[in-house]
Design a protein around this nucleic acid. Sequence first.
DNA 1: CTTTTATGAATGAAGG
DNA 2: CCTTCATTCATAAAAG
Lengths: 214, 214
Amino acid sequence: MMEWDEREHHHHHQAAENDCGRSNASGPAVPYVKVMTDEQLETLRKQIAVYASICEQLVEMHKNLTAQQDLAGVRLGNLYCDPLLTSAVHKITARQRWTPTPVQLQFLECIFNQGNGTPSKQKIKEITAELSQHGQISETNVYNWFQNRRARSKRKLQNVAPNNADSEADTEVESPKEIKTKAEVYQSQQNLAAQNGDMCFQGSEMSSELNFAD
Amino acid sequence: MMEWDEREHHHHHQAAENDCGRSNASGPAVPYVKVMTDEQLETLRKQIAVYASICEQLVEMHKNLTAQQDLAGVRLGNLYCDPLLTSAVHKITARQRWTPTPVQLQFLECIFNQGNGTPSKQKIKEITAELSQHGQISETNVYNWFQNRRARSKRKLQNVAPNNADSEADTEVESPKEIKTKAEVYQSQQNLAAQNGDMCFQGSEMSSELNFAD
DNA sequence: CTTTTATGAATGAAGG
DNA sequence: CCTTCATTCATAAAAG
């Protein structure tokens, strides 16, 4: 479901050279390295998210409480959450995702436009095999692509529905403002942990060590 | 930038299978895994620990505050929260579909992992009753959850198993693991969650398993 | 660099 | 159970 497509690496001279699986694999030259599966990473990511959420909640509670009565003596002063930390954690556990190459995209688009609805499982297999020649791709990727393509195409038509008759072949048309508004809300919801200025902690010496990402 | 290296692994079993440097480098159709150095793992642990610590402190603080004065009118614990949408005018569009709270999810995950596959009708009832204490939930929700969980778990396995390898270039994968190396973090999280059972952490979920390499 | 948009992926629920 | 759909989430890419 996902491939870690490591793009341009900034040739960092990290302590441990990660050469797992390299062609020259016979060498036991990889001393200290830990391996995690996608699932494990995902789990970790979720747990960290939970913590972030809990902190958020608690800070909110605290703010409400202190707002009512001046409890100057109980500042959150000692609790600091380093933004960098959050961001670093995020990067570490961030999920990567497949991105179709232009060729693959064109091919998929082409098949999609042939109208034959949801490609059968077998069909998916064939398509995947075909597209593998043009880059990394999996059946799941193909499956998801069609699912999304179909769903979004459908929604677009709905949004333009009021005008049935004039423009129909708008598979690539722009979406209405309503969607936009919704997106904004959604956007704000997402970045909670990332940008709550009120709980801007700091003071953890941890930050300096966050040099995984770039 | 990072030393996350994705690799094709042939077996799918726990993070422990750190087979970096193995001789088989041509392995087709194998799962991808992330690799971390000891240092990175250590940093991650520290970061999580920081979160745990912050949460504990906040909880403690909150308890002290509420203890000092009876804030009956500010029962913050019950707000079906949405901390981020403080300016929530949009929130009118309430969520329609059930979303398990972290605690609920954890519980479900736990039961699921006990292997006792088929959740009988009676069992569903019990589980639902139990989880009701942690938030809105119905038997249908529980039922669906198990259905989906199982189906998806199964599918993941299929994606790993069919290593027939013709034209490699396979992508996605997952690692089915049963291990239960609960990390301390997990433990803390649990306690925290328990103490704040009436909080609803929207938007973030947590999984039950945390087990990265040692 | 920050914000916005496009879109790959996850998941609760419905159909069969 | 398995498949399909709708909605939501998260991130890569584009815009400012």
